[in-house]
Design a binder for these strands. Structure first.
Lengths: 338, 338
DNA sequence: CTGTTAGCGCATTCAA
DNA sequence: TTGAATGCGCTAACAG
């Protein structure tokens, strides 16, 4: 059905090697070059990447495995990653783990079978076992957003703890003392952010009643319920730290449905901004992750590892996580208290 | 480095054919089966999909090409598509066209080279030329969201025109006569939606001054500028139809920044809902596309075409577009006028 | 610069 | 049920 270089050979009378050389950018006589190009055009020839990959055992493919593809955070990273890899001559093969470690493991095995040259993984959880098979297969891996316990795999992420610390500090500086947190004690990023918040509160000797700590998952539902409960307290907080994008979505929805106004009645600060700042009224004060820088760094790191792998014939040792700073972008969702 | 069936042959003493049969689910003696499984375990063997694909010229791979991956609409579809294909035993290979027809063409060629069994494409524009190469390569294609002019490729989408008609009708029924549109005359979906709006207005003999027609691209910027201009008019509209997700984002931002209130001063209805309803205050009345149904339908249609292709040895004829109904979900962003 | 040859890892005949 | 042989489409030596 599809044309092969053999067909080109028939048409042009040249040898397979010459044609192959043409395809791989070698030097040949202009007239031969022209002949081949003409034949390719006529036959609608397209390289069979499978055959090529079989020989070279290189796929020029990079696997990107994400915990959930229907996630704005993920998609945005995907966009930057894809652009970067494309510039470098690689194609990205994107796999969705559907928030399921089993699917994630399947994805990794699938990509190993595809002989990808490297992988970017935003893991479902903190305890996945996939790094080992990848290492054995000689495929370098770079994690994003979430580290994996003692897996010896480099991770590119933001300084969750420090920035959360600063976020709560900002609430404090605006005069808030009754500060609540809607966050996660299950996702690793959530735990890091929580740690930063709590550390600040502890350092300032601010008493945080347990009703002010809404811990669950990074989900819209948790954000919604958490905020509803907070607003219904006898002595509600004056300010709330919201731990991630989904939590913000849910929490803001709860505020919108309540008679209370932000920031008059309740001050808000959130971690992650993706399109939120377009829609929320008033504009929320948010911790913004440098998504492009994260993606570029991760891509470059992986590309470097891929080069090293092919040079040294083995996956290079991990060099430690790469931590980028997040920054706080002020809106007007925090009231100044006396 | 990685183990091959040859290694298994060495370990087990069985022939390549037997091992191959095992891998493909054939019948063999339990003891041989056990031997092979043991060897696979020890050697950490993984099938080389490139080699397998080279022989079978089947990849169990479906290419999914999207115009922009950093797009909530796209990502959500991707999620459902991926789940469906996964159930059917296919893996999805996702490519981002970065809103660039050139990149799109590269993606298609790349996927043809990868010998994907089929493709889902959400095209960048309405006039791409990729269907032809895909057809020549014997790869069935299903479009989503946007048809392509006379390409003879089936498309799964919603009834943009009819639902837009109804959306404007709803504004009318609420008593609005000064109705503006922020939409697109460049994207195909935008044109269809625009057509529906205009048809209704025409049928009702409602005069729409040209200042009320903000036509550009489906972008946040266009939504923002369009709304700002509308709000600044001498005689501003009482209601605005917003043509897609990005336009809504921009337009709502403009309203939020203005002193005007929705719906007291300006009524809003928008096409597309993705997380918007969580954040906007008041809750917007929106046209909601049945994303899961769209994805499932497209996936099933493609799967069917793939089966037909392998049966009949050629890509089946197009059967016409598949149009699903969108529905309007009421919020409280439309004021009732006397 | 070009051609000949061998082989990548696997599935699939056909014999046994 | 199993094994030996062949070829998928291409690249990479090497020789010319």
């Amino acid at each position: 059905m599809a044309a092969t270089i053999k067909d080109i050979k028939e048409v042009t009378g040249l040898s397979l090697a010459t044609i192959s050389k043409y395809l791989n950018g070698g030097n040949l006589l202009p007239e031969n070059r022209a002949k081949i190009e003409k034949a390719i055009e006529e036959l609608h020839y397209e390289v069979n990447e499978m055959a090529r990959g079989l020989v070279t055992s290189k796929s020029r493919l990079i696997g990107v495995v994400v915990f959930d593809i229907a996630n704005v955070f993920t998609c945005t990273l995907l966009k930057y990653l894809g652009a970067r890899f494309r510039e470098a001559g690689y194609a990205a093969m994107i796999c969705d783990s559907q928030n399921d470690v089993q699917v994630e493991a399947d994805n990794i095995r699938f990509l190993i079978g595809k002989k990808v040259d490297g992988m970017i993984v935003i893991p479902v959880g903190a305890s996945s076992a996939f790094p080992e098979p990848a290492r054995r297969a000689g495929i370098p891996v770079v994690l994003m957003d979430r580290s994996i316990d003692g897996a010896g795999v480099d991770c590119v992420k933001v300084n969750n703890k420090e920035t959360s610390y600063k976020a709560v500090e900002m609430l404090y500086d605006y005069g808030h003392r009754r500060i609540a947190i809607i966050g996660s004690d299950q996702e690793l990023t959530g735990m890091e952010r929580l740690e930063g918040c709590l550390q600040f509160l502890k350092e300032k000797n601010i008493d945080t009643p347990s009703e002010y700590l809404k811990l669950g998952r990074h989900s819209i539902e948790h954000g919604y319920n958490g905020m509803q409960e907070l607003l219904g307290l006898e002595e509600p907080p004056t300010a709330v730290f919201m731990g991630n994008f989904e939590i913000i979505l849910g929490a803001v929805m709860a505020v919108n449905e309540s008679p209370l106004q932000c920031p008059a009645d309740i001050s808000l600060i959130g971690f992650d901004d993706l399109i939120i700042s377009n829609l929320s009224n008033p504009r929320l004060t948010l911790v913004v992750q440098p998504l492009q820088a994260l993606a570029d760094s991760a891509a470059d790191l992986l590309l470097k590892k891929i080069d090293q792998t092919s040079d040294e014939k083995k996956v290079p040792e991990p060099q430690g996580d790469l931590i980028l700073p997040a920054r706080i972008v002020e809106g007007n969702s925090i009231a100044r208290l006396e």
